[in-house]
Design a protein around this nucleic acid. Structure first.
Lengths: 226, 226
DNA sequence: CCCGATCTTGACGACTCCTTGATCCGGCCG
DNA sequence: CGGCCGGATCAAGGAGTCGTCAAGATCGGG
């Protein structure tokens, strides 16, 4: 779930944002001043910060600087000041976007989505590593490690393993596996699966003939058990 | 040097941007329509795109979609439309920011700096220099050192190496490599990759026929191992 | 207009990978 | 007890991919 930290000293703005964000499935944290913003960011690990510049205790750029000292979380600045120099200062201080009040909720939400999307694409947020006591699978790097050493997989081997790992814990039918790896025209060539599951077990399992992770469900399909 | 692609069909806007950007040390490319924008992005490898939505030949969101199909370069939309739904559409289509005309040059430049900063910081590390026992790659300076001496790379060689180094440790598919270096129209010309990887290995690897850093993953792609 | 640098294209052997068939194993049911 | 079925294992042929070399094509600068 995406977490948003809303920082504003006007209760009605906080309230409106909280309602709109919560209704769209975001987790919402709030703070009413700069000190609370820094504390909330440190403790709540938000995915994006919506920051009003007119806070009672600190200057807006101070808050931005305080955040930027240790995090690259996207910051969307809200401000009543339409002056160009204010925008420039905030953006150069490290803000990601600047929206002037009064603002349209639709637009703010769209800018928020854009900021979150950007951060998730760029950052290592898609930390897609699945580990077992015997080996680890890194879905993003397309790498498999066993005893610290890299295991070489052929494209088809990787395709089979990837589908199973993405559906870890669940049963994957033979048909589904064939269609996702070999294409929609396949569905009955179960002998392919036997060959490739055997190869994967040889490369990954401690006892290939007694698999602990790449399990056969007779007559149904296969399952990756973590 | 940072490269900006400016897309607008109004010559005076293009001119104003070109002057202001060039004066601040940016390299400026221009295009007057959507087709030119896609071509310019593929050939010029800009670090950021400034895109007017009211182009004569294509809808704005089409241009955004055309870019987003193969690149994550930041896109700043310029538009005369102040309507909220336009902003939402553009941002959700994949734009990074939305500025309404008439705009302040200071503000646009600040937003541009913010977009570029984000993209470069959000990179795999933020570390612009990647070193191996055999050679050193400086992504910011676009230079490669080996035994203290600079290695001369052709533009295409550098393009390939840059993509691999930016994704160090991760596997880069041949399709991704082709599209990022040669443009979105390419994707199957794997012979190019064979030639350029061989050239890079000759220039950088101690034993070109036994690469330690520029690794081939048969059937899948290539990987830079640090 | 020529020249050098760079990019594209083609061809070849070496190697890897996919597919396929044969064989073996274990459980199930008649 | 014996046949049968789905799965596991093994080996080998052919298709496809990769590394390499070299020759054309293209481009930009002098």
């Amino acid at each position: 779930m995406t977490t948003v930290l809303v920082v504003d000293d006007e209760p009605q703005i906080v309230r409106a944002l909280r309602i709109n964000l919560a209704a769209r499935g975001y987790r919402v944290l709030t703070a009413a001043d700069g000190a609370g913003a820094l504390r909330g960011a440190a403790e709540g690990h938000p995915d994006v910060v919506v920051l009003d510049l007119g806070l009672p205790d600190m200057d807006g750029s101070e808050v931005i600087a305080g955040l930027r000292g240790w995090t690259t979380v996207p910051i969307i600045v809200l401000s009543a000041r339409t002056d160009s120099t204010d925008k420039v200062d905030a953006l150069d201080a490290g803000a990601d976007d600047y929206v002037t009040k009064p603002f349209g909720m639709d637009e703010l939400l769209a800018r928020l989505r854009a900021a979150v999307r950007r951060a998730s694409v760029a950052g290592p947020d898609g930390e897609a590593v699945v580990a077992t006591p015997s080996f680890t699978v890194d879905l993003a790097a397309k790498k498999v490690l066993r005893d610290g050493a890299e295991v070489r997989l052929t494209p088809t081997e990787w395709g089979v393993l990837e589908v199973l790992v993405r559906n870890r814990g669940r049963l994957v039918t033979q048909r589904q596996l064939l269609q996702e790896v070999w294409g929609p025209a396949y569905g009955t060539e179960t002998n392919y699966l036997r060959v490739y599951l055997a190869q994967l077990r040889h490369k990954l399992e401690a006892e290939p003939s007694r698999p602990r992770y790449l399990i056969t469900e007779p007559g149904m399909g296969y399952r990756f058990e973590a």
